[in-house]
């Protein structure tokens, strides 16, 4: 039916154009909005492909949760000072697009020469209607054959939660000093070690002061034993 193809082409056209817009936009907020448009269109495509449940999930999880999260972080990161990201590396853009085109060609060859061998399964339009629709069908398959992946995915989400909580948690002894943000740790990891002299010397008095009566472990370079912002600040103040 031509109408179906027409709708598909329209949806995918919008999706591709807005995806392209996403990577071209100067402002990352605009990029995010373009990505939302793409995702919504993709969700519509999912419905055409008999995946109503996934279409809803796509909207809720991607558009609803992940992108809003990204936007949220984007706002946190000082939106006034967003640097100009474009035009700095023309060579990279040329090569990037070049690689993309070649890979697209390679995938296109694969698509066009593909032969189908898979045996058709029972989940045609009628098959799904027989159990009450896509959601019911997915539910049946998911909870009969995919118990282990569900459990495992739950654990992945738990791991991610714990990790994110750790990364995002403010430091316990942190003082919100404005200057702290600009402190950059000196790179201590140059291969030749030639910049060793730049490291602020930590006198033992300094350490005692900081660590109280506890014995403090120190490393000369490239490790958290030395290069906390506090240490660096002290070094600079002296």
């Amino acid at each position: 039916m031509a109408a179906e193809v027409l709708v598909f082409n329209l949806l995918s056209g919008i999706a591709i154009v807005s995806a392209a817009a996403m990577i071209m936009m100067r402002n990352p907020v605009h990029s995010a909005i373009a990505l939302v448009i793409t995702f919504v269109n993709v969700a519509a495509v999912f419905i055409m492909l008999r995946a109503e449940f996934l279409a809803v999930v796509q909207i809720i999880v991607y558009t609803g949760a992940i992108l809003v999260l990204i936007l949220f972080v984007l706002m946190l990161v000082n939106p006034d000072e967003l640097p100009d990201f474009h035009g700095a590396r023309p060579m990279q853009q040329i090569f990037g697009f070049g690689l993309g085109i070649i890979l697209l060609a390679e995938i296109a060859v694969a698509i066009l020469t593909r032969t189908v061998v898979a045996e058709p399964g029972p989940w045609t339009e009628d098959g799904m209607a027989a159990v009450g629709g896509n959601v019911q069908a997915i539910g049946q398959v998911l909870y009969s054959g995919y118990v282990l992946p569900i459990q495992a995915t739950a654990l992945v989400l738990l791991a991610a939660t714990i990790g994110a909580l750790f990364l995002g948690r403010p430091d316990e002894d942190e003082e919100p000093t404005p200057s702290r943000r600009t402190v950059a740790t000196i790179s201590l990891a140059h291969t030749r070690g030639s910049d060793q002299d730049e490291i602020p010397a930590l006198s033992s008095a300094n350490i005692k002061h900081e660590a109280g009566d506890r014995d403090l472990i120190m490393a000369r370079d490239a490790d958290e034993f030395t290069s906390t912002p506090e240490d660096d600040q002290k070094g600079q103040q002296e």
Binding site: P149, A152, T153, L155, V156, A159, A160, I162, G163, A164, F166, L167, D171, A184, T185, S187, L188, A189, A222, D223, E224, S227, T228, P229
Partner: peptide, 22 residues
């Protein structure tokens, strides 16, 4: 799923000294 579970945990572990830029 297994690879992602391992990788996600190790991403965080890599940044575990989160006060150190490197």
């Amino acid at each position: 799923i297994g690879i992602e579970m391992g990788s996600l945990a190790v991403y965080v572990l890599t940044g575990f000294a989160r006060r150190r830029m490197t």
